[in-house]
């Protein structure tokens, strides 16, 4: 009965299309996550004067659970695509750190409930709420750290090979801390920066919110800039390759745009700020992607996604696109119904 069974070593849409979808959804996921994590940090440590009365704080706290829903929902798609294209290294790294990896969703669930706990309470912002929010934030710090450690490890097959050989219980994390510490802190600082932006955006007509948001935006920009440069130099072995490819231009452009966005924010040009921020954000996600490709290609796996055979499944792909458009339309329609009646 030995037929030739169907192969699974293929991707069912052109790689560029998968990559575009991957980067777009990952960007959206990061934005939602940054709104939430950065927002949490600012709400907690923003030193809003007269907190009880400040509507922006309440607005954020009420929005956190929905932002968490958005973060999770938008995170599923890029996780799917990363597992599709980079199955071998990504699974290998996550199995090696299995317990930490598995705890991600449990910790996220815990944080989610704490966000709800804070959002449902009557008082803004009381001590209980503060504690809830801090717990949620600690949860997110955990999640982000494990993601950084694991995805960074997936880019270094020799690291997970060695780590697995020494321990198979799943209770070990990427030991190569210098390869991801700056990367992780850079991402968190970036989250605070984007959080600052959202504070400004939601608090447009609230002078205090504007000032607090702007301060965080600038501060976090500076910190994340320094960390980003540190991360870049920590990439020493592949820095040369980055310098030679398009990545360095995208990176430079993104940094320049971030600087401009700070400038525009201080000029109170919100639209320009948002555009500059968004474009530079996408640029950063693309650079992150290129770094992964360079690492994997140079690794012992010599992995290059371009080599995965292409075997199209257009019919279901088109159904997916149609459903995607329908979903966006449905969500838009529901928002219209919802807010249409609120006024």
């Amino acid at each position: 009965m030995l037929l030739t069974l169907p192969s699974y070593d293929f991707i069912s849409a052109p790689l560029w299309l998968v990559t575009v979808l991957h980067i777009v959804t990952l960007t959206l996921h990061f934005l939602a996550m940054n709104f939430m994590v950065g927002g949490l940090a600012i709400v907690l440590f923003g030193c809003f004067k007269n907190k009880q009365a400040n509507p922006i704080v309440e607005k954020f706290i009420r929005a956190f659970p929905s932002m968490m829903a958005a973060t999770v929902t938008l995170g599923i798609a890029p996780l799917l695509f990363v597992q599709l294209v980079y199955a071998k290294p990504v699974y290998a790294a996550s199995v090696t750190s299995a317990w930490f990896w598995l705890m991600i969703f449990m910790v996220a669930m815990g944080s989610y409930y704490f966000l709800y706990g804070a959002a449902f309470s009557k008082k803004f912002i009381g001590i209980k709420q503060r504690v809830y929010l801090i717990i949620a934030l600690i949860g997110f710090v955990y999640v982000s750290f494990v993601y950084s450690a694991t995805f960074s490890m997936s880019e270094h097959p020799d690291v997970y090979q060695a780590l697995y050989a020494s321990n198979q219980t799943g209770l070990v994390l990427n030991p190569n801390i210098m390869s991801y510490l700056f990367r992780w802190m850079h991402m968190l600082a970036g989250a605070v920066m984007v959080g600052g932006f959202f504070v400004v955006l939601l608090g447009r007509d609230n002078e205090q919110a504007f000032i607090v948001g702007r301060r965080f935006y600038l501060g976090a920009f500076l910190v994340s800039f320094v960390l980003g440069i540190a991360y870049l130099f920590a990439l020493k072995d592949i820095l040369r390759l980055i310098m030679r490819g398009p990545a360095i231009w995208i990176l430079t452009g993104s940094i320049a745009l971030s600087v401009l966005s700070v400038f525009w924010l201080y000029k109170r040009k919100i639209v320009l700020t948002s555009i500059a921020l968004l474009v530079s954000f996408v640029g950063m996600v693309v650079v992150r992607h290129i770094v992964r490709l360079i690492y994997l290609k140079g690794s012992a796996l010599a992995f290059d996604p371009a080599q995965i055979p292409f075997q199209p499944q257009w019919s279901i792909f088109i159904i997916f696109l149609v459903c995607f458009v329908l979903a966006l339309a449905a969500v838009g329609y529901m928002f219209k119904l919802f807010y249409g009646e609120q006024k």
């Binding site: 849409a13 829903a69 499944q313 279901i316 995607f324």
Partner: peptide, 21 residues
């Protein structure tokens, strides 16, 4: 995932709608 990625992606579009709704 290799065989059903677009199935999952389609499910994801439903999921977005479901959560928002």
């Amino acid at each position: 995932i290799h065989n059903y990625v677009w199935g999952w992606a389609t499910e994801w579009t439903m999921f977005i709608t479901e959560i928002a709704a």
